[in-house]
Design a binder for these strands. Structure first.
Lengths: 145, 145
DNA sequence: ATTGTAATTGATAATCATTATCATTAGCAA
DNA sequence: TTGCTAATGATAATGATTATCAATTACAAT
């Protein structure tokens, strides 16, 4: 059993929640997928392995994963919330191509530090932030010429 | 007639769109309000002056304002799109208090420059970005002690 | 002014992701 | 095994936004 599974089980135990096959299956599938996944995409995969699972349960488990610290929400502003791994996957921002939709994870420690300073200069204590950089990737730029 | 109204009328003319009292009224009210406003909030104000106006028209005019370059969307991730003035209101980011919801507009030219460089280092040509800084303002920090 | 035409409007239905409801099922501690 | 309560699946509800469509209206040409 890996560390994420351990965290999940401990979270369940601590909160008097039950260990069900649905939760196990959805957790497995989420953990095997890298990158961003929407609730619907996850549900589609889950259905293939167990068609009896309802999508409400997928939404419910995703909420649990967030509370347990295993997942994190991302909102690209297209009306769909996506989820990504949080465990051993430190904070980062996203670079999104307006042409093909490709996304890259980026971090710049100088920007991170400056954000903190900007917030403090207004009396704020920064807890977190979101930064989305939009543009055109190399491929899409050539196509647009 | 002020500059924004001028821009709006020129936009209408250029696109063979008609000048209607509904569009005029909604424009007026939008221009008089500073800050962020949702479609629903705008509709509530519009209704008081002309109860016959439907909310679909408010949505439609907001779209026009964006196309005409007079408004800009903001998405705080709470499921409601807000609108703010764009004319003579240069780009900025938002500092949002997780306690009371207060928002401040902030800009840091160094961050802006670094964002461009980060994007370029991945071969991207940056067109725009969003940055939301979340934390607790001075007031809310004291209350939480 | 009148008219013709295409844009506009308001009312309302539709959409779509997400959440709530609720009767049934099933963990799990005793 | 039993009893209690959480969990599930099906489905309805929600809420912001968008689409539809018949009736109205702006506006250019007459």
């Amino acid at each position: 059993m890996n560390e994420e599974q351990n965290i999940f089980h401990k979270y369940l135990e601590k909160h008097d929640l039950r260990d069900t096959p649905q939760r196990e299956l959805i957790l497995q599938i989420f953990l095997r997928r890298e990158g961003h996944i929407s609730a619907e995409q996850l549900y589609d995969i889950v259905k293939k392995r167990d068609p009896s699972i309802g999508q409400a349960t997928v939404y419910r488990v995703l909420k649990l994963l967030i509370e347990a610290g295993l997942a994190r929400e991302i909102d690209f502003g297209d009306g769909v919330i996506r989820y990504e791994h949080k465990y051993n996957h430190p904070h980062h921002d996203h670079l999104v191509c307006r042409g093909c939709g490709k996304t890259l994870e980026v971090v710049d420690s100088v920007i991170e530090e400056l954000q903190k300073r900007v917030a403090e200069s207004y009396g704020f204590e920064l807890t977190d932030h979101e930064m989305y950089l939009y543009g055109y990737c190399e491929n899409c730029r050539q196509k647009r010429q």
